[in-house]
C-alpha cells in the first residue's frame, strides 16, 4: 500500500509546478501542522509563474488553539513552504515580495487571511516586467496617439532600422512597421518610437508589439516584446456554429487556428 502511495506521488509530482502538496501532511489533528504558503508572481499580461521570494507572517487574532509560532520571516523557494507550528486557526497578516533587488516581484503585497490548520495560502505579488514596455500601452482605436514608444534594450541599426510586428491574440501579425526613430537614454539606445497608423479596423484586444533587429542577411531577430491594449472597437461576435468537437469557436473575420482533433483527446 505504501508502494502504491509512493508511486502515486510520482504522478502528483508532475503537477508540483503548481506547488501542489504532494500528498503532504494535511493531518489537522497534528498540533504542529501549521499551514502552507505558496508564492507566485502575476505579470501584467495575466501570466502566473511560481516564484520564490520573501514571505512574512504575523499572527493577528483568533482562537489559535494549536501551534505556538506567531510570526515568520523567511526567503522561500517556489512551491509549498510549510509554516510548522504556526498558531491556528486565526487571522494572519501575510506578506510576500522581493527577497533581493532585481527579484521577480515588483513590490510587497500584504493582506490578512483567515488561516486554518493545514490550509494552503497562495501569496501573489505583481511581477516586475522583464520585457519591453509600451507608452502608451492602452490605445483607443478611434483616437490613437501619433506614436508609441517601446522601451527596452537591445535595438540596433547596424543592418537596418528595427522592425516592429504587432501580433494579435491569435498570434497573427496584423501590422508590421519600421521604427520611426531610436530612443536614447544617457547615450545608449533605450528603445524605439513607432508611428501609429489608422486603427479603425483594429479590433479590441491585447496585442504584442515585437521588436526585431535586422540581421546582415535580412532576417529578423527578436529583441523584445511589449503588450499594447486596443479598445473602443469590439469585434463581431464569435461564430456560434464554428465550434464543436472540442474545437474552440473563434470570432469571424479573424483567421482561425486549425480545428485540432487533439482537443478531443
Amino acid at each position: 500500500m505504501k508502494k502504491i502511495t509512493g508511486i502515486s506521488l510520482a504522478v502528483l509530482l508532475a503537477w508540483s509546478a503548481a506547488g501542489f502538496s504532494c500528498g503532504g501532511n494535511n493531518n489537522t489533528s497534528n498540533p504542529n501542522r501549521g499551514f502552507d504558503i505558496q508564492t507566485q508572481v502575476q505579470f501584467p499580461n495575466g501570466l502566473v509563474i511560481l516564484q520564490g521570494g520573501n514571505a512574512q507572517g504575523q499572527f493577528q487574532s483568533g482562537p489559535g488553539t494549536s501551534g505556538t509560532v506567531t510570526s515568520f520571516n523567511r526567503n522561500v523557494n517556489p512551491g509549498i513552504t510549510t509554516i510548522s507550528g504556526a498558531k491556528v486557526p486565526g487571522v494572519w497578516r501575510l506578506a510576500f515580495g522581493p527577497a533581493f533587488f532585481g527579484d521577480s516581484c515588483l513590490t510587497f503585497v500584504v493582506e490578512n487571511r483567515n488561516v486554518s490548520s493545514g490550509s494552503l495560502e497562495r501569496l501573489t505579488c505583481p511581477g516586475r516586467f522583464f520585457g519591453f514596455t509600451a507608452t502608451a500601452d492602452t490605445i483607443d482605436a478611434f483616437n490613437p496617439p501619433a506614436t508609441v514608444d517601446i522601451t527596452g534594450s537591445g535595438s540596433e541599426t547596424l543592418y537596418g532600422t528595427p522592425m516592429i510586428a504587432f501580433y494579435n491574440e491569435f498570434g497573427n501579425v496584423v501590422a508590421s512597421t519600421p521604427a520611426n526613430q531610436l530612443l536614447y537614454t544617457d547615450g545608449a539606445v533605450s528603445g524605439v518610437r513607432v508611428g501609429v497608423s489608422d486603427l479603425s479596423q483594429v479590433y479590441d484586444g491585447i496585442y504584442s508589439a515585437v521588436v526585431h533587429n535586422v540581421q546582415a542577411d535580412g532576417t529578423w531577430e527578436i529583441v523584445g516584446s511589449a503588450s499594447v491594449t486596443v479598445y473602443g472597437n469590439p469585434p463581431p461576435p464569435p461564430d456560434p456554429g464554428g465550434g464543436g468537437g472540442g474545437c474552440e469557436p473563434q470570432p469571424q473575420n479573424q483567421e482561425q487556428l486549425p480545428c485540432d482533433t487533439y482537443n478531443t483527446y
Binding site: G171, V173, S176, V210, T219, W220, I222, S225, S227
Partner: peptide
C-alpha cells in the same frame, strides 16, 4: 514572449520579415 524573447518563437534559421498575415 515578452519575458523570454530568445526562447519563444525562435526559428531554426533567422526569422523572416513578419509581414501582415504571417503568424
Amino acid at each position: 514572449l515578452p519575458n523570454f524573447p530568445q526562447l519563444i518563437n525562435q526559428k531554426t534559421q533567422g526569422s523572416q520579415p513578419s509581414t501582415v498575415g504571417t503568424k
